[in-house]
Simulated assay, not measured.
Amino acid sequence: MKSLPEWTDLRFFLELARSGTLSGASRRLEVEHTTVARRIDRLEQQLGATLFDRSREGYELTEMGHAVLPHAESMEAAVLAAQDQLSDTEVAVRGVVRLGVPEVLGVRVITPLLARFLQEQPDLSVDLLVQPRFANLANREADLGVTLDPPSTGRY
């Protein structure tokens, strides 16, 4: 084994082991079936072992594939646990944001929602720039801009 396998390759391995077909794994992973095949080939090359028996009916784990499976599942469980822990951790939101908005939208919609939002985020300050035109972000008139229509010029 020349290098350690990538976690993403092991994800492809797990999905193929679970679905039994390239098309099933590709649907679950939202990639082309050729990508799944390429990732499995790379993983097998890195591990120096055949992980699947290929047939017309699909893919079936070999003895080595069965040996790798619990390790890949453990890695998946660790990644999911980390993701759960991180999603429970609150990210501190602080600083000043200048928000440019059209007049009616700013007064009737944004302002009532902003009051409650700022109570939940006491370290954040929002300068609401209520304007009859789009705030020029390139000239740093605002940090964020809300429009009712998409801009017709510029890179926005």
Rank of each mutant, 00 (worst) to 15 (best):
R54V: 11
R56Q: 03
R56V: 03
G58E: 02
E60H: 12
E60R: 08
L61Y: 00
L61S: 01
M64P: 09
G65H: 00
P70D: 06
P70G: 03
H71K: 07
H71F: 05
H71P: 00
A72G: 09
E73G: 01
E73S: 05
E73W: 05
S74K: 04
S74N: 04
S74F: 08
M75W: 06
A77M: 04
A77V: 03
A78F: 04
A78Q: 13
V79W: 06
V79D: 07
V79N: 06
L80F: 10
A81D: 11
A81S: 06
A82H: 08
A82C: 04
A82Y: 06
Q83G: 11
D84F: 14
Q85A: 07
Q85R: 10
L86A: 15
L86T: 03
L86V: 04
D88W: 12
E90M: 12
V91E: 11
V91Y: 15
V91R: 11
A92T: 09
A92V: 06
A92Q: 11
R94W: 10
G95N: 05
G95W: 04
V96A: 14
V96N: 13
V96P: 03
V97H: 09
R98H: 13
R98Q: 03
L99Y: 10
G100N: 02
V101D: 00
P102H: 02
P102F: 01
E103A: 09
E103S: 12
E103C: 07
V104D: 10
G106W: 01
G106T: 01
V107W: 14
R108W: 04
R108P: 09
R108A: 13
R108M: 06
V109H: 08
T111N: 13
P112C: 13
P112D: 14
L113W: 12
L113C: 09
L118A: 08
L118M: 12
E120H: 12
E120F: 11
Q121N: 08
P122M: 01
D123S: 09
D123K: 13
L124D: 01
V126N: 02
D127C: 09
D127K: 06
L128M: 15
L128C: 13
